[in-house]
Design a protein around this nucleic acid. Structure first.
Length: 111
DNA sequence: GTTTTGACGGTCT
DNA sequence: TAGACCGCCAAAA
């Protein structure tokens, strides 16, 4: 089990429950990466088809990473499939569906 | 070895 | 309230 930040981001992303979303900053802060950019970079380098990366958006609730998917609309489709409402690539009631890793997971479990 | 860029966030002006 | 700047770490050119 590798403990690289790359793998950490992977595991946290997989831990996001159905119908919930989180932002890069929350993951970065939870893993103490120091920068939300690392999260986005890791997900981009990773195989986004193997993890629910569509549940990770920026702090504004915008699907900033949709462009990296095979189809720019697949991200919205999947989120809507989970009961979320997406308008103009932005999650409505984002805060209501926000899932913060640090409030449900333990950093000690990922170090 | 140096420079640029990246699925971002927070702070300052 | 909105726009601009800086920081953060790593990878590829």
């Amino acid at each position: 089990m590798e403990n690289s930040y790359f793998n950490k981001v992977f595991r946290v992303t997989e831990a996001i429950p159905f119908g919930k979303v989180t932002n890069y900053g929350a993951i970065a802060d939870f893993l103490a990466l120091g920068s939300a950019r690392m999260v986005g970079w890791a997900l981009n380098k990773c195989d986004h088809m193997s993890i629910p990366a569509h549940r990770v958006v920026n702090r504004n609730g915008e699907l900033s990473g949709r462009n990296q998917f095979p189809n720019p609309t697949i991200m919205q489709e999947m989120l809507e499939q989970e009961g979320l409402t997406i308008i103009e690539h932005k999650i409505q009631n984002f805060k209501n569906h926000l899932w913060v890793p640090s409030e449900h997971l333990s950093i000690e479990d990922y170090e």
